[in-house]
């Protein structure tokens, strides 16, 4: 069954307290390779049928209205994934 993956990230300009906390933890654990961490969300929408434009349009609509909060988040990726 095909799965469509939606990826949502906090808007680049906004503070991401979770990412900041992980970045701080990395530094405390001795890893100095990474200067910044940002944390987003991944949704997997599974359905029965072919991946066509209609489904993708519906996912885009869902992603922008329900899965993300357009005021503070961006939908950064929608892609089909066969499982």
């Amino acid at each position: 069954m095909p799965t469509i993956v939606v990826e949502v990230m906090p808007k680049a300009e906004l503070l991401d307290p979770q990412g900041k906390a992980v970045a701080g933890a990395l530094a405390r654990l001795g890893s100095s390779t990474f200067s910044s961490v940002r944390i987003g969300k991944r949704f997997e929408l599974t359905f029965d049928g072919p991946v066509d434009d209609a489904v993708l349009a519906e996912v885009k609509d869902i992603a922008e209205t329900l899965l993300s909060n357009a005021v503070i988040e961006d939908v950064v990726g929608i892609h089909a994934d066969a499982l």
């Binding site: 906090p10 808007k11 300009e13 906004l14 503070l15 991401d16 307290p17 900041k20 357009a70 005021v71 503070i72």
Partner: peptide, 11 residues
Amino acid sequence: PTKRPAVQVGD
């Protein structure tokens, strides 16, 4: 959508 988010996220 806004170009620059006019709201802030607090910690």
